[in-house]
Design a protein around this nucleic acid. Structure first.
Lengths: 113, 113
DNA sequence: TGAACATATGAACACTTATTCATTTGTTGA
DNA sequence: TCAACAAATGAATAAGTGTTCATATGTTCA
């Protein structure tokens, strides 16, 4: 019985392991979601749905310090979720692409079900 | 000029605030993504794509302790991302619905682009 | 009932992370 | 060039999180 059970597990494991994404992909996936897992960052991204905005205004809208926003924007930038352009002294941030929108909308569906 | 700028900001803010999801929704959204933002949990969910599995086997597949898996399953259960059924001494976990699959696939697209 | 097994849970610890504060970098206009 | 402003950054701190270890709960079978 024990032998049979072990064999069965072996097979199951092999099948599942085969279909499972690579360790690295799963790690990157978790890292991506980690970025969305913060209220400040999610708010930033949602605000940018409406178009580009400068750091100061983002801070005002979010009611957090300029420094805090800047730190978070750095993280979003690092994950290529936002892009930016400089116009004189001010820097305008915008969504990098529509993936961001899709990901957030996908999560929204689960929330508002 | 300063007055005009302030007025503009006021309008912008009002427009953006109007379209922005409620504070509570954004909080819940971040909480949801926070759950996906851990390698162990993402792996658990991906494994469950292939069907239900008991705690012990999940632990073996993930190479983590039974306790660790159990703790993480508790979190997934709390977020209604997984469901479970008891059969004797063993408990089998499975995905709660297809939302989970969609959310993970959505993130995958961003990774593998 | 009690031994054996599967799972769940609580406390503790190490590690990560978001914000704040102080400072620096970069840009404009006088 | 220098003062004023916008944004970025580094260090420090406080709060949150995942794992481990020990133990409890729940179930089966002798």
């Amino acid at each position: 019985m024990e032998k049979e059970t072990d064999a069965m597990h072996g097979d199951d494991f092999a099948v599942v392991r085969e279909k499972l994404p690579d360790e690295e992909v799963l790690y990157d996936l978790a890292e991506l979601y980690k970025i969305f897992g913060d209220t400040t960052r999610v708010k930033l991204l949602c605000i940018l749905f409406e178009g580009e905005m400068c750091v100061q205004h983002l801070a005002e809208l979010l009611q957090v310090s300029q420094s805090a926003v800047s730190h978070q924007l750095r993280i979003l930038k690092g994950a290529r979720l936002v892009k930016y352009r400089r116009d004189g002294k001010t820097v305008y941030y915008a969504l990098a692409d529509d993936h961001v929108r899709e990901i957030i909308e996908c999560g929204m569906e689960h929330i508002t079900e």
